[in-house]
Design a binder for these strands. Structure first.
Length: 358
DNA sequence: AATACGGGGAT
DNA sequence: ATCCCAGTATT
């Protein structure tokens, strides 16, 4: 494809969008840089339906970029809790503060300056510039990868660098001269609602005449799926200590690794490690622990088998007081903390809503 | 180039 | 049970 005037990809896609696209998505009204940015971050590896309530709630708490910058980490994490990929929230918060320090409280209208902000890569930077300002930048998210792999008949897993490079090139080649904001939204909407992974609506497709995969009967095998591998398994002992008031001892996880900086239960790899932690922080008999039923949880990269150990009416050692990283928390306070979903599940299983208080 | 990072939905 | 999703950062 060397002559832009013979490439009807963008114009057909825009025509489809005008007629059948979703025009009621919340980040479209109004389509401001801050709202576009927030939506793009929340939508990374996360479906529209999941994002919707978080997007609305987040904006109620932090209506503007400077509001977000001024908030505390705990306030931000509380609004993100449950969405997953928590580095996104920490990066979003850090980036907001950088924007206040370096860009007058606004997102910069500059590709390199955007990519320099934490949490914004090539695709998100392009998405922000195109949707907020109409600037001419390509995006390459999962939807665009799928659409282009089919349209051009590109084989190979799109996560492979060579394939991804080719897809970026194709994405750049289709860029229209106008309506970049709508075009960018249209590509993602098209992939999410029509050119779906399973059962795409090829009969209704605006691009069916030029789609290589459809012509060659390869729609169901493109894009090539990721080579699979068995999930490794890990076991964790979850220490559930309750004091005489029925409060639960929570600790703040380290700033790096899984569930970084979120509140969770003390955790150990084995009983020796658990006993050691218990002795250092609590008074009582470790062996009085009640072993509760295993709670399995599957992450994208490993399977976690949580084994809760419960003690009641415990006291902390005198040297251990409430501090920034270790707290007794009443059950009513749990929802306001940024607890990871599996921990919430564990707690709700172990501590029914009607137990503990008269 | 490979891995870490969550949670929810679809098949 | 397995795969996938409006990706980015780290190693």
């Amino acid at each position: 494809m060397n002559a832009a005037e013979h490439d009807h990809f963008a114009e057909k896609l825009l025509a489809w969008f005008d007629a059948a696209g979703r025009h009621d998505l919340p980040w479209l009204h109004p389509r401001t840089p801050y709202r576009v940015w927030l939506s793009e971050i929340m939508l990374q590896q996360t479906q529209v339906k999941t994002v919707m309530p978080y997007f609305a709630r987040f904006l109620e708490h932090f209506p503007t970029l400077p509001d977000l910058a001024a908030a505390s980490t705990d306030q931000v994490m509380a609004q993100w809790a449950g969405l997953g990929y928590y580095a996104r929230a920490r990066n979003l918060h850090a980036a907001a503060r950088l924007c206040v320090q370096q860009h007058g409280g606004d997102l910069p209208r500059d590709f390199d300056a955007l990519v320099a902000l934490p949490g914004i890569g090539r695709s998100t930077a392009g998405a922000i510039l195109a949707q907020a300002w109409g600037d001419r930048f390509a995006i390459l998210d999962g939807n665009v990868k799928r659409v282009l792999a089919r349209y051009h008949g590109v084989a190979g897993w799109p996560g492979a660098p060579a394939v991804e490079k080719q897809l970026w090139q194709l994405a750049a080649q289709h860029l229209p001269q106008a309506r970049m904001a709508d075009y960018t939204q249209a590509q993602m909407d098209f992939g999410a609602t029509l050119c779906t992974r399973h059962d795409p609506a090829c009969m209704l497709c605006a691009l069916q005449d030029d789609c290589v995969a459809l012509r060659e009967g390869r729609v169901d095998e493109l894009p090539t799926s990721k080579p699979g591998k068995p999930l490794p398994e890990r076991i964790a002992l979850m220490l559930l200590a309750e004091n005489a008031h029925g409060e639960v001892l929570l600790l703040r996880r380290p700033p790096v690794g899984i569930w970084a900086s979120l509140w969770s239960l003390p955790q150990a790899d084995d009983h020796e490690q658990a006993r050691q932690w218990f002795a250092a922080h609590l008074q009582g008999d470790y062996d009085q622990a009640e072993a509760l039923a295993e709670i399995p949880h599957v992450f994208s990269h490993y399977r976690l088998r949580m084994h809760p150990l419960r003690w009641r009416a415990l006291a902390a050692r005198d040297a251990v007081r409430d501090n920034d990283d270790l707290r007794w928390v009443a059950r009513e306070q749990l929802p306001s903390l940024g607890l990871p979903a599996p921990i919430r599940k564990l707690l709700s299983t172990v501590i029914p809503a009607n137990a503990g208080t008269p």
